[in-house]
Design a protein around this nucleic acid. Structure first.
Lengths: 296, 296
DNA sequence: AATTGCATTTTTAGATCATAAAAGCCAGAA
DNA sequence: TTCTGGCTTTTATGATCTAAAAATGCAATT
């Protein structure tokens, strides 16, 4: 298999996910332009991604007609492509954040230091810093160098994030602009039920945490107030960095999914006040279980 | 006067502000290392800044003894250095944001386009994009190019920001971690009184809006919860972009300062619940006056 | 009429080198 | 001792070129 560039690889991974989740059934025709629009890119990288999947026998290529979904092979599971979780796990960003949280790097660093440590080109470094700046734990110094902020290094960080969430999330549901979106609710129900069905067993820890975040962001998204959403996303991204490092309590995941489903049900019935209350209790419960075992 | 690099210029500006506000009295000795520490840079740019101010006769240079604050000259006011407000006003970032808010640029742009339009080098462009990404209205596309998000382009943006503020700010004062910091209160009182004293007349609109933002951020800062602060800062930065474009109602500023001072008084007396309520009313009042004249 | 498959154009990444700027060091003055 | 003032080292920027990757246009195919 030829060394592929990152964008086609990412797209290939996403297409696989679409197939796995059944949103692209066996035999479906994958139109290049359609997929390109969906991912917000041009046809070139999509074509490469499709070619890649054809090489791996996930798709079938018919000359002049395009690519079609093949029936899944048992062996395909064994292939175990890196996947997005894996990518995130081993990514430079994760290592950088971990190094900082574990005090392996100083609180002021030069670009050269980072480039050398993580073997990065200038553009890659810019990407890394841009992301960390967006997430709020890195800022540029006045002269040379970057400052790493200790926001998430304190033992209280977890609690502080939850206090913000407990304020915003229940309130969001009571905002006048809150509009129930049944499509979103159905999608989230599907995800939560799937997670519950496999008992959180076969799933990567990253996936569990991420899906949880996405559930909450989807709920807040229905306020139609992008500033609420941003505030939450920001806190959540930071929380994920912390959460990945903690051991996931898989029994807790069951409770969590159940509560998520209850919230969905309440919203579907339009009982906003009840949903808001349950959301507050849900977050309070999570906080109570996590606060005791403070990390670091 | 020699063409100076930006960092020394910025530092010179800040030192001027320190002198103007009386925090550096006439005759004071400016130790390079001390100032360097204060601004988080090395002595090199500080030295240049001091040299610059000595050239402009703001400071006196005594050989081998360093720089000293001179008595202010009436003529100095006429000099009218650009100042930070002016810098912000005419800055590329402002132009970029304005162009986007006024629909002068498309919602997807390439780096080349931006470099050509604003005459930027690669590093300057990176800075510009980094800032806009941090503020939350620009994001990278999957392939080439950047996407500009319409968060602040809708007529509701103002109201949405205020709804978030009305949720967070009063709640922050009731958080268990909220600790009154008398030094901060005194500083804010000084600023607000100064603003009130000159009747908001001689001050740049930018300054008025910025000081208002800083007051609110200082209040929230006392929660000790950096995630509250970040959520607010983010919303405020976006708000400033919108606010600068609107005509400032200078009578409104008087009311605002008065209310700010009342909040400070309540906090100084430890009446948190009252302060929190007043804060909510204060924000509600501001929203009520602004919402009617929706822009765009 | 839509879509593929390929060719062409545009855009960005990476590498290198010269230069500017900031950081850091140290002797000597106060 | 502390601090300045000059000096050296380190770090980042800007310009340029080449290669890689993505976007786009178009004839051929279904």
């Amino acid at each position: 298999m030829a060394r592929a560039s990152p964008l086609p690889l990412r797209i290939a991974q996403e297409i696989r996910e679409l197939i796995r989740s059944g949103r692209l059934p066996v035999g479906a025709h994958l139109a290049t332009q359609q997929l390109a629009d969906r991912f917000g890119v041009s046809r070139s990288p999509v074509r490469e991604a499709l070619q890649l999947l054809a090489d791996r026998k996930v798709l079938q290529l018919r000359a002049n007609r395009g690519f079609f979904v093949r029936p899944p092979r048992a062996s395909a599971a064994g292939h175990a492509a890196p996947g997005p979780d894996m990518a995130e796990r081993s990514g430079v960003y994760r290592r950088f954040a971990d190094d900082w949280l574990d005090d392996r790097i100083a609180d002021e660093v030069t670009e050269q230091f980072l480039r050398a440590r993580y073997r990065l080109t200038k553009a890659q470094l810019t990407d890394l810093l841009m992301r960390a700046v967006r997430e709020g734990w890195v800022e540029r110094k006045a002269g040379y160098g970057w400052r790493l902020l200790p926001v998430a290094k304190t033992p209280e960080a977890f609690e502080q994030i939850y206090r913000l969430r407990m304020l915003i999330e229940p309130a969001a549901m009571l905002e006048p602009g809150f509009r129930i979106d049944r499509a979103v609710l159905a999608e989230q129900r599907r995800i939560q039920e799937e997670m519950l069905a496999c008992g959180a067993a076969g799933m990567a820890a990253e996936r569990l945490v991420l899906d949880g975040s996405l559930f909450h962001e989807a709920m807040i998204g229905m306020t139609g107030n992008p500033f609420f959403v941003r505030a939450l996303q920001q806190a959540n991204r930071m929380r994920r960095l912390l959460e990945y490092r903690a051991r996931i309590d898989r029994r807790r995941v069951i409770t969590q999914c159940t509560e998520h489903l209850q919230i969905i049900s309440l919203l579907e019935r339009g009982e906003l006040a009840e949903a808001s209350q349950l959301m507050r209790r849900h977050l309070g419960g999570a906080l109570a279980r996590k606060a005791p075992r403070t990390r670091r």
